Measured scan of single mutants.
Amino acid sequence: MAAGGDHGSPDSYRSPLASRYASPEMCFVFSDRYKFRTWRQLWLWLAEAEQTLGLPITDEQIQEMKSNLENIDFKMAAEEEKRLRHDVMAHVHTFGHCCPKAAGIIHLGATSCYVGDNTDLIILRNALDLLLPKLARVISRLADFAKERASLPTLGFTHFQPAQLTTVGKRCCLWIQDLCMDLQNLKRVRDDLRFRGVKGTTGTQASFLQLFEGDDHKVEQLDKMVTEKAGFKRAFIITGQTYTRKVDIEVLSVLASLGASVHKICTDIRLLANLKEMEEPFEKQQIGSSAMPYKRNPMRSERCCSLARHLMTLVMDPLQTASVQWFERTLDDSANRRICLAEAFLTADTILNTLQNISEGLVVYPKVIERRIRQELPFMATENIIMAMVKAGGSRQDCHEKIRVLSQQAASVVKQEGGDNDLIERIQVDAYFSPIHSQLDHLLDPSSFTGRASQQVQRFLEEEVYPLLKPYESVMKVKAELCL
């Protein structure tokens, strides 16, 4: 049975990233139509530049190519590739079939990587351009969430054990800070992308030097003109047959890092959902379990974690691919890159769409948070109580021993009897502590235990987050809708 299948058929496997999760716009960027249309555009740009620099290419040939950029006979191309065992030459023939007058000058002087690699770089750039505003929107939604809850005390956790208090907004800023680093890295790697350009079979530009009869300047002009037509500021000066596969490492490393950030955020949300302090959106008709109707599973956060793990592992592909590119190139890269580049971007696209949807509907339960604080705060307040007693004339050592005994009794009630923490009640009825009984409410005010959390939130948002989001103001209103 021949390899390949009808990918629109229910009898043929289709990647869930495309069929179930990723956005239509990201799927289109990695589609065959987008790819092969870009090949034709690159052939047109090459012909236009070659004509401008004096090669015998007519206006009629150029116009014929322009008129057929979208006229792609995919069936013919597939048949040609089956016959020739070469995808680029299959599309040269297919393009030439609908451009008979231009057929002889299509791909003039070029090698397969002229269309293959340059198209990949265009796709990487455009895919990054799709991700950047999506990530900015996630940051914006979380920034709104953090600002609104900047002063809401909550129990902090280290080692997932109760620690000092923080605020809900401050905790959210930990998430935002990681995503801001990801946004900066995505922008950097996007701006650092260079075009492969017009380089020939081993990167020496020998074929173009021959076409222009040894004119170095025209060869350099050709490279520059096509690079500018493709919208790049610069091209690699040095290439082998391909652009260095280190570029793929750079791009997928940034995406993998984004995956790590999203995994951490969504894990926190899942843990908070278990504590009943916070939940992701839950639709009115949504079913959490087929057997347990009360369940409210954090399905979206779980999906993000599941896909983020996949995204983090994909960076190993370009690392290994770059390491086995012998001399000017081997074909070890080809099949692998067809999979890992598309999957990385479709996965990143999915987790950003999902995280935006989550961040637009996060639900906080202040009463649950308050109750958990009441359970733990008495123990945390013991040092403040000791200091207040010393100020009232008591002995630190005597007070410490009193607190120690009462704390152990209260802990026994919590752990052995399943009761509430009654340390404060014990202190309130103990005559030894009568000098500070009137101060206990103040000493137990949760806001006095959150330090500068709310001020940190305000400063972080104003100095770091809002300036970073400013270039994306025009796209901030787009909502994230999930079908599944």
Results as ranks from 00 to 15, higher is better:
2 A>G: 06
3 A>E: 10
5 G>M: 13
6 D>H: 00
7 H>D: 08
8 G>K: 15
8 G>F: 15
8 G>Y: 15
9 S>T: 14
9 S>E: 11
11 D>E: 13
11 D>M: 09
12 S>A: 11
13 Y>L: 13
13 Y>R: 09
14 R>E: 15
20 R>W: 00
22 A>Y: 10
23 S>C: 07
25 E>A: 14
30 F>I: 07
31 S>Y: 01
31 S>N: 15
32 D>L: 13
34 Y>I: 07
37 R>E: 09
38 T>E: 11
40 R>W: 01
43 W>N: 03
43 W>A: 00
47 A>Q: 04
48 E>T: 06
56 P>A: 09
57 I>G: 04
58 T>K: 07
60 E>R: 10
69 L>A: 08
70 E>R: 14
71 N>E: 12
73 D>Y: 07
74 F>I: 15
75 K>T: 12
78 A>Y: 11
79 E>Y: 15
79 E>L: 13
84 L>D: 14
86 H>C: 00
90 A>C: 10
90 A>S: 09
90 A>D: 00
91 H>N: 11
92 V>K: 05
95 F>M: 09
99 C>I: 09
102 A>D: 04
105 I>G: 09
107 H>F: 03
110 A>V: 04
111 T>A: 00
118 N>Y: 00
118 N>T: 05
118 N>Q: 02
119 T>I: 07
119 T>D: 06
119 T>Y: 14
121 L>M: 09
122 I>K: 01
132 L>F: 11
133 P>K: 14
137 R>M: 14
138 V>T: 08
138 V>F: 13
139 I>R: 02
144 D>Y: 13
145 F>E: 10
146 A>D: 00
146 A>V: 06
147 K>V: 12
152 L>I: 14
152 L>W: 07
153 P>N: 04
154 T>C: 08
163 A>H: 00
164 Q>K: 00
168 V>K: 02
168 V>A: 06
168 V>G: 02
172 C>R: 02
174 L>Q: 14
174 L>G: 14
180 C>S: 10
181 M>I: 14
181 M>N: 08
182 D>R: 01
185 N>L: 11
193 L>A: 10
195 F>M: 14
195 F>P: 05
195 F>V: 06
198 V>Y: 04
199 K>M: 02
201 T>H: 01
202 T>W: 01
203 G>C: 01
204 T>C: 09
205 Q>Y: 00
206 A>P: 05
208 F>Y: 07
208 F>L: 14
212 F>G: 05
213 E>M: 13
214 G>D: 11
217 H>L: 14
221 Q>G: 12
226 V>H: 04
227 T>Q: 09
229 K>L: 07
242 T>E: 08
242 T>M: 07
243 Y>K: 05
245 R>M: 01
247 V>A: 12
249 I>F: 07
254 V>F: 05
255 L>W: 03
259 G>L: 02
261 S>D: 05
261 S>Y: 01
266 C>T: 14
267 T>F: 13
267 T>I: 12
269 I>T: 08
270 R>T: 00
273 A>K: 00
277 E>P: 01
277 E>R: 02
282 F>H: 07
284 K>L: 12
284 K>I: 15
288 G>S: 06
288 G>E: 02
292 M>N: 02
293 P>N: 01
295 K>F: 01
297 N>M: 04
297 N>K: 00
298 P>D: 03
298 P>K: 00
299 M>Q: 12
299 M>S: 12
302 E>L: 00
303 R>F: 00
307 L>R: 02
308 A>S: 11
313 T>G: 14
314 L>F: 13
316 M>F: 11
316 M>L: 12
316 M>T: 14
321 T>K: 00
322 A>G: 08
323 S>Q: 03
324 V>F: 07
324 V>H: 08
324 V>Y: 06
326 W>E: 03
328 E>M: 01
329 R>T: 00
331 L>I: 09
332 D>I: 00
334 S>Y: 02
341 L>F: 14
341 L>A: 14
342 A>Q: 09
343 E>P: 10
344 A>F: 01
348 A>C: 15
348 A>V: 13
351 I>P: 02
352 L>Y: 07
356 Q>L: 13
357 N>I: 07
358 I>F: 07
362 L>E: 07
362 L>P: 07
364 V>R: 04
365 Y>W: 15
368 V>H: 04
368 V>M: 02
372 R>L: 02
377 L>S: 02
380 M>I: 05
384 N>K: 06
389 M>C: 08
389 M>V: 08
390 V>S: 09
391 K>Y: 13
391 K>P: 07
394 G>N: 08
396 R>V: 05
397 Q>S: 10
397 Q>F: 01
400 H>L: 05
400 H>E: 02
401 E>V: 04
403 I>N: 06
406 L>I: 13
410 A>G: 07
411 A>L: 06
412 S>Y: 13
413 V>S: 13
413 V>E: 14
414 V>L: 06
418 G>P: 03
426 R>W: 07
428 Q>G: 11
429 V>M: 11
430 D>N: 10
432 Y>N: 07
435 P>Y: 06
437 H>T: 09
438 S>C: 11
438 S>W: 09
442 H>M: 15
444 L>T: 06
447 S>H: 14
459 R>I: 11
459 R>P: 06
460 F>D: 01
460 F>M: 09
462 E>V: 08
462 E>S: 12
464 E>H: 05
465 V>M: 14
466 Y>W: 13
468 L>D: 06
469 L>N: 04
472 Y>L: 14
474 S>Q: 15
477 K>T: 15
477 K>H: 08
482 L>I: 15
483 C>F: 09
483 C>K: 09
